[in-house]
Design a binder for these strands. Sequence first.
DNA 1: CGCCTGCTTGACCTCGCTCAAGGCCCGTGG
DNA 2: CCACGGGCCTTGAGCGAGGTCAAGCAGGCG
Lengths: 250, 250
Amino acid sequence: MVSRLSDYLRKLERRGVLPQEERDALLSLPARERVFDDEEIAIKEGQPSLEAMFLVDGVVSRQRKLDGHRQIIFFCLQGDAVDLQSIWFHRADHSIVSHGTSRAVFVRHADLYDLFREYPTLAMVLWHDTLVDASILRDWNLNVGHRRARPRIAHLFLEFEARLNAIGAYDGGLRLPMSQKTLADALGLSLVHFNKSLAILRSDGLLKLTGRRFEILDRARLTKLAQFNPDYLHLRAPPKLIPQPESEPL
Amino acid sequence: MVSRLSDYLRKLERRGVLPQEERDALLSLPARERVFDDEEIAIKEGQPSLEAMFLVDGVVSRQRKLDGHRQIIFFCLQGDAVDLQSIWFHRADHSIVSHGTSRAVFVRHADLYDLFREYPTLAMVLWHDTLVDASILRDWNLNVGHRRARPRIAHLFLEFEARLNAIGAYDGGLRLPMSQKTLADALGLSLVHFNKSLAILRSDGLLKLTGRRFEILDRARLTKLAQFNPDYLHLRAPPKLIPQPESEPL
DNA sequence: CGCCTGCTTGACCTCGCTCAAGGCCCGTGG
DNA sequence: CCACGGGCCTTGAGCGAGGTCAAGCAGGCG
């Protein structure tokens, strides 16, 4: 039986291969699996955090409530550590919600602490991963703080494309399992304005959408419009202590 | 001679005291000091990161450029780790700029790695600190994404007040060593609109400003306006592995 | 004294929000 | 099978927040 942490390991190893011993240690961590329905709350703001959640399949978001509204802070895709950032916190400081059906595994923090004691390098690698997270957060700040609606939307799509590409899940289009309201919440836009801006992007021939499947038609113009530079995603950048891989892992 | 890392240690210990041995190890790290002028760039986006910067005195910001504009991602105050998040990265992914004169110490990453090898708990404590950072980033996202100009401004001031209070640097008012343009850049507002919104906050009797010194006149109404809840700052929340302090360190 | 930088204010216009209604798709029940 | 209802997407109209341009003003400094 293959541990479902293998997706996460694969993500980590895109940045640099790990020693066999540490890969094995990671994969042999006890993990329980859970499936979530659309809009189901996986982790609720304020609840004690005792386990770390890793996404195996689907999409979940990190979000917080303000008044009646919600702000979506981040979208996690297959293979992402969902709430690794809560590992040293007593309580979750935001909620995790599923979009569409998703599948995740949970690993007890206590087991991770043991792992770190034994393999300090793994702690560094996971620390690095949480820092990449923070880097993306900084970029989202830039995005909502300084970009107008259209470039802001374009930026989100290009980020999705880049991240899906990295995990080999981009087949020329992206199927997003969430409503436009949800995307608008992530961008700090109203649903109506999001929809209208999207309509302009479409009529400009920049992207196409059929149902909830999006296709990027003109990446060059879209990239220019959004001033998109994928460096902040650190998709392949290895942490300092991990040697560069000799050859690309598949 | 007192190491200038003592400010940072004090910040960490507000969340939980450290064993004597580890405090000593932290304080005896070799550190070089530097002073920066107003608007001087301490660390430039893209430059190799070999040292970690800790702010001893003054204010610096993390920022990124977009087109001609700049987005300010975060303000660091006395005692903050400025770019700890770059510890596992090869290059700085954003710039650090001084506001007013500031003083900082630099510790080589290599020395920190040695420290972590010897005292793994310290690695966890610093990791935790970078996660608090990320928590604040999430809140800034919420702030620029979902709050209108006035509550957004109010929120920033309340954050400043809370953080200055925590380090005992709040004397009933806050002197911010940066121009209103800089604050506007942090909030994703234009200078003009920032200034006008600020004028309304003042005429409403919520705050007062003389020169660059701000005074909070009506904290209750300001807190309500901004929906401010300081939990995200994790000012006193200890990381999981550190025991609660028996008594408050001074 | 004059200049430069930063704060302030006015005028104007655009972007984006709100309210509202209509259309499409799909699931459910008659 | 169709009728109905409920999400969700789409579009229109109107308004208000916030951006841009521009001018005046106050303080610091050579």
